[in-house]
Design a protein around this nucleic acid. Structure first.
Lengths: 124, 124, 124, 124
DNA sequence: GTGGTCTAGACCACA
DNA sequence: GTGGTCTAGACCACG
């Protein structure tokens, strides 16, 4: 379970944060469930504790997690997270649509083709 | 014609490169047309020549322009560029679709809503 | 009677101490009344005895209780406590007023609005 | 101009951030004015560049500042900052009022006395 | 044991 | 020169 990709352009701390956001939003991790300790996760990913700490701090700032000194980090039960996430993704989609329109292509067509290809990838 | 936005999170050289990609792909700049010289454009944008240089290098590396030593930079014939650009955007769309599916949302629904909002933004 | 809130940003030992300060100052606990034993309270709150110990130490240090070796912890006569507490709160208020003035806002106005909102919260 | 107080319980990076928030909100620093570079400020305060970096990152996250790679950090022109700040301070005031009421004291009286004392401090 | 902060020093991308 | 990320190692507060 080593989800750091050094070829990924995102910084490591953000890859970690994004990974846990996904685990939380998809319900793989349940409210009040404890995240691995900073040091332990750092060992597992063979990265530096500071880097994990930074990821956890970001998760706490954005409301995905609450942290109790001396005890650990825990998943926050927050119903608003999903809608927040949806708005964020919709924003990304809007940006992409505008980029497509700016070069004179048809977003609808590209979307349809991309859906097709994504489905194919899934079958692999 | 000052298209640098310091509040934009993209680095400056990329804003410049992106701007010229768009001008080329939309046909505003025609094949073999000459781009402004590095120094001149740097003056116009009141930025560092190194930055313009980096933008032009990116454009050349991605096949949008060709450079002739001692003469300048020129737009490459854009036959293949359009399809290449389309593939690139389709790739981005596919990544976004996968990200949406990963958190259990419906890409079709989000796409429709984003199209709606993009149209609204245009009307402003 | 479980007054620990893990979402509260204050450390647990302080939540416990604050709770007892309030009980003492409001007269719910009377002078020379005995506090629960460290072990018993730790059980009740399902927390670590060290934590309760630290809370009691803080209470003793600040003069709210006195401890008798081998017997337990007892509420101190609260004659002087009230005025001490008042000075402490007045100090906090003064700091906040200065902070408000430092950014050019009007403390009187903010105070009035905050009183209003606090009253509203109470009605819920 | 050394505004770090090692006796202050707030972490250093936050003292720095708070200081600049105040400078920005009071208009001492104007929109698009450049903040000292990370390294330079670290020297001035004889602290570590990482610590300053952390302060600047917080300022950017909270919308007080924008950062341009290779150029520096600049004050953001944001009209909503003042109202945001006001809400934050009102929240603090509300918390304090509730704390005062919890021990059975009169907020209005304490506020008046604190205002008095704050005025006296100013005359020194 | 836990998280949070800080220092020192390195490397990278960018202008 | 600028900001941003990462490592290594230390210290503190908390449970």
């Amino acid at each position: 379970m080593d989800f750091i990709d050094y070829l990924d352009s995102r910084p490591i701390y953000q890859q970690i944060a994004d990974r846990y956001k996904q685990l939380i939003l998809t319900g793989v991790m349940e409210p009040d469930e404890q995240l691995p300790s900073v040091r332990k996760l750092a060992m597992e990913l063979s990265t530096n504790p500071n880097t994990v700490q930074r990821a956890y701090a970001a998760l706490e700032r954005e409301g995905y997690v609450y942290s109790v000194k001396g005890r650990g980090n825990f998943v926050r039960a927050n119903d608003t997270l999903k809608s927040k996430q949806k708005e964020e993704l919709k924003g990304k989609m809007k940006d992409l649509i505008k980029e497509i329109q700016a070069v004179g292509l048809d977003p609808q067509e590209l979307f349809a083709e991309a859906m097709e290809e994504a489905a194919e990838d899934d079958r692999d």
